[in-house]
């Protein structure tokens, strides 16, 4: 019973944290266009993958990963609000990586700095399918400018034997 309550508490905490970080990102760069967050859900079966996906591995008080999968139009709009005129594949990938970097890095304060993040990695659908995500992994559907991206958070307390290499599995 206590374990279920702890899991529920961890889920609530993580969801609120990353929802706040995501909203703060948009509030800072496009304050007039607030995003919306649909109900989060647990990952069952094959994870949904959109046009571009970027993953950041996390270590410290928690261990696991965060990944962002986004459609091209949202990344094009994000490039525009960052003042970037180039919308080539290179900059779209870069924008996806940078957003996953910012959303994961901004959680550092909530964990008192006991929070290490990796350099973002670009993943394809095959890589995502082979990720060894924890059972508690949940999906946060983000809506902005009529586009939908998914922020996927898979974190466990850092007292188990899961290692970064195991997390990435075949995608490493």
């Amino acid at each position: 019973m206590r374990s279920v309550m702890n899991e529920r508490y961890a889920f609530d905490r993580q969801f609120k944290l990353f929802k706040g970080i995501t909203f703060d990102y948009f509030a800072k760069l496009v304050p007039e266009e607030t995003p919306a967050m649909d109900e989060p859900y647990l990952v069952f079966g094959r994870p949904e993958v959109l046009d571009y996906t970027s993953l950041v591995e996390i270590d410290g008080e928690c261990r696991g990963c965060l990944y962002l999968t986004s459609p091209v139009p949202m990344l094009e709009d994000l490039l525009a609000i960052n003042g970037e005129p180039d919308v080539s594949r290179r900059t779209l990938l870069d924008m996806c990586r940078e957003l996953s970097n910012v959303l994961s890095g901004n959680a550092s304060q909530a964990f008192g700095g006991h929070w290490e993040i990796s350099v973002p990695k670009t993943l394809d659908a095959h890589d995502v399918e082979h990720l060894n995500l924890p059972d508690s992994t949940f999906v946060m559907p983000l809506r902005w400018r009529e586009q939908r991206a998914l922020l996927v958070v898979g974190l466990t307390p850092n007292n188990d034997s899961t290692s970064r290499s195991r997390l990435l599995g075949d995608a490493a």
């Binding site: 970097n101 890095g105 901004n106 550092s108 304060q109 964990f111 008192g112 700095g113 929070w115 993040i117």
Partner: peptide, 12 residues
């Protein structure tokens, strides 16, 4: 200029 926003990181 970093996404890591903790005081610990800034102090480091």
């Amino acid at each position: 200029i970093s996404a890591l926003n903790s005081h610990k990181t800034a102090l480091e």
